[in-house]
């Protein structure tokens, strides 16, 4: 017990993160109106991942919690990624 109990995140940190999130949102909407071809989906997903990372690390306290939680989250995201990649070994090569 006691991990993460000691750190209280400041309001200002949260507000800063929120401002960044809003900026990234407007960025992704702006970029979407440009024609980047196949890059556009990568950019959209990249920005979304960045936003998710911010929420995970700050709002969800991963940055301040025990390392174990970060490892757990990593494991589950990697699992999902593996499912995706292995499925596309089928789809990307045939249809």
């Amino acid at each position: 017990m006691g991990h993460g109990k000691n750190h209280i995140v400041n309001y200002s940190t949260y507000i800063f993160v929120w401002l960044t999130l809003v900026t990234l949102t407007s960025l992704t909407v702006t970029v979407a109106s440009l024609d980047l071809g196949f890059l556009s989906v990568l950019v959209a997903l990249g920005i979304a991942s960045l936003k998710a990372l911010l929420v995970l690390l700050v709002f969800m306290h991963l940055r301040f919690d025990d390392r174990m939680f970060r490892i757990f989250v990593l494991i589950s995201f990697i699992t999902l990624l593996i499912f995706l990649v292995l499925t596309f070994f089928d789809y990307a090569n045939i249809r």
Partner: peptide
Amino acid sequence: DIIWIFLFP
């Protein structure tokens, strides 16, 4: 929130 962050784009 995170799920929506991906659903939106």
